[in-house]
C-alpha cells in the first residue's frame, strides 16, 4: 500500500492508504480527526469542508494522493480552543443546533474571510449556499459572519 506524507494542522503525518482514498476518510478513519464530517461524499453538502492551502475544499472530493505537499487545515486546527475569530463569532451568535454541519460551515466561512475580509452579501450567500444545514441555522450563520467581519476588520 502506498504511503503519503501529509501536513495537517501543522503536524506532519505519514499515512498508508490507497491513492484514491478521499482525504475525508484519511482524516476520519486513519488520523482520527473526526471534526471533519461526512455528509454525502459527493460534493453536495459541505459537511466535509477543510482548507487546503488556504482554500475551502471538500475533503470528500480530494484523493489523498493529491494532498501531499499541501497545507491542510481542519476544524481541529482552526484553533484548538475556539479562539479563531470565526469560532468566536459562532459562539457569540449561538449558531449550532445539532452542530454536525458546523465545522464545515466554519471552515467555509474562515476560508472566505481569509481571501476577502469584507465580502458582500452576495458573495457570502454564494459561498455559504454550498453548505447545507438541516437544522436551519442560516440566520445565525449570517449573523456570525457579520460579527467575524467586524472583528477581523478592527
Amino acid at each position: 500500500m502506498p504511503s503519503f506524507k501529509l501536513n495537517v494542522n501543522n503536524t506532519a503525518y505519514t499515512v498508508d492508504a490507497e491513492a484514491d482514498m478521499p482525504l475525508l476518510w484519511v482524516l476520519r478513519d486513519l488520523l482520527n480527526l473526526t471534526g471533519t464530517k461526512y455528509g454525502c461524499g459527493v460534493a453536495s453538502c459541505g459537511a466535509c469542508t477543510v482548507m487546503i492551502d488556504g482554500n475551502a475544499a471538500y475533503a470528500c472530493q480530494r484523493p489523498v494522493g493529491t494532498c501531499v505537499n499541501k497545507k491542510i487545515t481542519t476544524i481541529e486546527g482552526l484553533s484548538a480552543d475556539g479562539s479563531h475569530p470565526v469560532q468566536k463569532a459562532w459562539q457569540k451568535a449561538g449558531v449550532p443546533q445539532c452542530g454536525y454541519c458546523q465545522p464545515g460551515q466554519m471552515m467555509a466561512a474562515a476560508a472566505m474571510l481569509e481571501k476577502n475580509k469584507k465580502p458582500s452579501e452576495e458573495t457570502i450567500a454564494e459561498v455559504m449556499s454550498n453548505n447545507l444545514c438541516r437544522c436551519g441555522t442560516y440566520h445565525r450563520i449570517k449573523k456570525a459572519i457579520h460579527i467575524a467581519i467586524e472583528d477581523i476588520n478592527q
Binding site: 481541529e76 459562539q91 452542530g99 466554519m106
Partner: peptide, 12 residues
C-alpha cells in the same frame, strides 16, 4: 447559550 457550545465549535 448552549452548554456544550465550545465542544461543537472545536469539533470535539
Amino acid at each position: 447559550k448552549r452548554s456544550n457550545l465550545n465542544d461543537i465549535l472545536t469539533g470535539k
